[in-house]
Write a protein that binds this DNA or RNA. Structure first.
Lengths: 343, 343
DNA sequence: CTGAAAGCGCTTACAG
DNA sequence: CTGAAAGCGCTTACAG
């Protein structure tokens, strides 16, 4: 490979001068500079990454770590949009992104998702907070004292910065909107208690508070249905609920867009027309990017912006501009669509 | 940061011995080894990446380069599945993946998508062949003599290995299948001539040959409609065609699944029922992963397998096991679904 | 304005 | 079985 020495030989200077030219230092005679640049051009020299890293201690690489395989389509949109934001900032700063996934079940292979971090192959980490950050990762971060920013969760650790949406208020406002459309009986599709997801529980809290504040009667045990990420048994739950309900809901607030198709299927199976008999409101903003047969009223998170901000915060940490924990809360945009009807 | 020297001091040996233990060399006394391992464990030592790279010249990182932004949902499934396969191989070999995109329009920023490659920050590249490989990239590859494997295209350059599906035969067999279902007038939705995509043109050739071999009359100018990736004006094209057709097609073969919703919408608008009046067959295998309202007969590419094989080939090149161009052709699986009816 | 020296963390021969 | 020396490609003081 072509090194500074090769360039130096061709240009008839020392390799130190080459280094100066490469790094744009001022104290180089114009003529020398020209010779060096010509040699660089001729040989196609580019400074070797490893040499620079060893000196600076910075590798200009960050890791994007997700706790869910890329391929899970229900989460792909989320990941991709966040990634697009991160990438934009990385481009501007000539930073590269290493992509990693935390294994879902602990594999007994030699695979170590923290290896790049331990090896100092990355300057910092952006963790996609679709699941709680693993303990062993937390320990590594603490031990090696390198920065990490979490997107979509709000970890309490003092050394973790985060970026998140205002889920409580988004849900609160969504319910207000639903009420404006005349609905008085609203169901909520949430997550099983056992599943950790601060976002969804905030949305649930916002849902409840909003109904309370508006003096709308509700009984959580009846109108909050729970499921898992795959909505496995959700249709059955809906069938059961429909039998029990004395007052049938005229609107359903789904805590995640990915649940919408199953929710609609469940209600249709139970004899409802959607959205004629029951309005559907989602959360996330992905459903309308798929080929779903109805445009769904939903809450659109500024995921790309969140990715950008997360990257900015991380870069600040890496460059030592900011050492203490940073947080950013983003507002969500409600989008009325065909699935929300007046009652 | 903790270095070999720190470990050596604690264990009371030289840093060379530490290196030996870390690299699992045989000639270390068992007792010494224990002391060193204890020190490594206590200090949480992990070998610094940059030091190793400078020695070995290998950075155990590959770049995945795509000519389309991640976020383009029409291509997300493709990218993600390929990526999943690559990732699996990377895990096994402790290789990291840097993700990059070729800018769609030449930006006048300082962004250089080949920088990691020039800096020798990656040992090789996997290029997602959704567009033709850019000339400047080809030149860099040649100049720096480091390996590249293309997925989904078949570049002729002698230094580019590739992995692709057998598009011609897949299309050929698909048409045979359609004919088995009794159809005798079949339309094809292809790409505009100006758009480079060897795959799609192979599919078109397979379509034509299959009809010819079966002695089914066809007139390409009538039954091959063309569009761009976004299917922008496809509905208009269909409307025009419907007016001209003397014999209306009873089946439509879409060269890409992403076109299916627009094709169906176009035919429905023209008064057809789908699939009652016209069967629809796609290609790729993504459409059924979305919430589309009909299960579409389609051709499923083994994208994950292709990703794995591409990675394997690349690793072979990197490790010097194989120096000459390698290619692999994958067969496609036809999946009959609701959208293909007997006539 | 330019170059010789030292060092970043590691590995690879070479001695002993 | 273990260590001193040299070197991977670069940058950062230090001399001149």
């Amino acid at each position: 490979m072509v090194t500074q020495k090769d360039v130096a030989d061709l240009a008839g200077v020392s390799f130190i001068t080459v280094s100066r030219v490469v790094n744009g230092e001022a104290n180089v005679k114009e003529e020398t500079k020209k010779k060096v640049l010509a040699a660089i051009d001729k040989l196609g020299y580019a400074p070797n990454f490893a040499g620079q890293v060893l000196n600076s201690g910075k590798c200009n690489t960050i890791a994007i770590l997700t706790p869910i395989p890329f391929i899970k389509s229900s989460r792909m949109f989320y990941l991709m949009q966040v990634l697009a934001g991160i990438e934009e900032m990385c481009r501007k700063n000539s930073i590269d992104m290493i992509l990693g996934t935390v294994p879902e079940v602990m594999e007994n292979t030699s695979y170590d998702y923290l290896r790049p971090f331990k090896q100092k192959k990355v300057d910092g980490i952006i963790y996609i907070g679709l699941k709680k950050i693993p303990k062993e990762m937390l320990e590594e971060l603490k031990k090696r004292d390198r920065p990490c920013v979490v997107i979509g969760d709000r970890p309490r650790s003092s050394f973790l910065s985060w970026v998140d949406t205002d889920n409580f208020n988004a849900a609160y406002n969504t319910v207000q909107k639903i009420l404006e459309f005349g609905h008085r009986t609203v169901a909520f599709i949430g997550l099983e208690e056992g599943i950790y997801n601060e976002n969804i529980s905030e949305r649930e809290k916002g849902f409840i508070k909003s109904l309370q504040d508006s003096g709308v009667a509700y009984s959580p045990e009846d109108y909050i249905l729970r499921t898992d990420y795959d909505a496995s048994y959700l249709q059955d739950r809906i069938a059961d609920a429909v039998k029990k309900w004395k007052k049938k809901p005229t609107a359903v607030f789904c805590s995640m867009d990915v649940l919408v198709p199953e929710v609609v299927a469940g209600f249709v199976k139970a004899g409802f027309s959607v959205p004629e008999d029951v309005s559907i409101v989602g959360f996330d903003g992905f459903i309308n990017d798929t080929n779903y047969n109805i445009k769904v009223a939903t809450n659109i998170q500024p995921l790309k912006e969140m990715g950008k901000t997360a990257a900015e915060i991380l870069f600040n940490h890496i460059n030592g501009n900011v050492s203490k924990k940073q947080t950013a809360v983003f507002q969500v945009e409600f989008e009325v669509n065909d699935s929300l009807r007046h009652v």
